[in-house]
Computed example of a mutant assay.
Amino acid sequence: MSTAAPAPAKGRVRQLRQAYAITKKSDRNIGLILLLTFLVAGGIFGAVGFWAFGSTTLGLILSVVFGVLIGFLAVLIVFGRRAQTAAYAQVEGQLGAAAGALQMLRKGWDVKPAVAFTKNQDVVHRVIGRPGVILVGEGNTARLRNLISAEKKKHSRIAGEDVPIIDLIVGTGEGEVPLQKLTKRVQKLPKKIKPAQMTALLYKVKALDAMRPAAPMPRGPVPTSMKGQRKAMRG
């Protein structure tokens, strides 16, 4: 009988190592921070366990186990947040960064990168979910306004009056959404349509998408690396 470790376990370890290596490039103190997190969280909750379980041998064992488990949990939480921040920092400003962030959305969202674009590499991505149709632009704000306006007209013809069409622009200017806050902003939008309406809408936009030219969007490093970081965090 084979005694080799299961492949999924090896895969998760490899993903964590890759995420750590990527994070360390922009967060050089990540190792020290994680160590301090483990010691502080583990020490505090170990002391709480000692107070709760008593000073007997069993109590000491339970206190140590409790402290170690809480310490590891704290490390995973801190690492997950800092890894995500590092991933956003490394791709911010690159073409396709918003598409990579949007593709990290969980089930229940349909993401279509680069439904519209200009020769100057201004791009509009589309997300369909319970809030309706969300058009997300990245590039020059002035040029994006016209591009998004044209897309809103196209989608409003097929979506109907009951489906909201929301537009967002990724950036750091006034009224714009920072890249690292994009997915949270989308997820917090109020739900306006029912699942059945969303399904019907997806069928309608297929006809619209079939008439479009091929989008010149990079499909390699940005989406893949950001999705890889989140997969590593989820285990």
Rank of each mutant, 00 (worst) to 15 (best):
L95W: 10
A52N: 13
R81I: 05
L76H: 13
G67Q: 07
G71R: 03
T118M: 02
K107R: 15
F53E: 01
A101T: 08
G80Y: 05
A87F: 01
G80M: 06
F45H: 14
V127E: 02
F117E: 06
L39A: 13
A89E: 03
I128K: 09
P113K: 00
M104Y: 13
F79Y: 01
A74Q: 09
V65W: 12
D122I: 11
L39D: 15
T56P: 00
F117A: 10
A98T: 12
G59C: 00
F66D: 02
G96E: 01
G71W: 02
V68I: 12
V40L: 06
G42Q: 08
F53H: 05
L76C: 13
G42V: 02
L102V: 04
K112N: 15
I70T: 14
A116D: 02
P113I: 01
G49D: 04
A98M: 11
A97D: 08
I128H: 06
M104L: 15
A101C: 04
L60F: 03
I61D: 04
F66S: 05
R126E: 10
S55Q: 02
T57G: 11
T57H: 12
I61C: 06
Q121T: 14
V68S: 13
T118H: 04
A99K: 04
N120I: 13
W109E: 11
R106L: 15
F117W: 10
R126Q: 14
F50C: 12
T57Y: 11
G96L: 03
V127F: 02
V64I: 02
T57M: 12
V48Q: 09
A74L: 05
Q84S: 12
K107A: 15
A74K: 09
G46C: 10
G54D: 00
A86Y: 00
A86P: 00
A114H: 12
G129K: 08
A52V: 05
F50E: 10
G93P: 02
A74S: 10
A101D: 03
V123A: 07
T57E: 11
Q84W: 06
G43K: 06
L62N: 06
F45Q: 13
A87I: 02
A98S: 14
I77F: 10
D110S: 13
A83D: 00
N120K: 11
L60A: 06
H125N: 11
G42W: 01
G96I: 03
V127T: 05
H125G: 08
V111S: 03
D122P: 07
Y88P: 04
V65R: 13
V40T: 08
V111C: 01
F72P: 12
V40Q: 07
G80L: 08
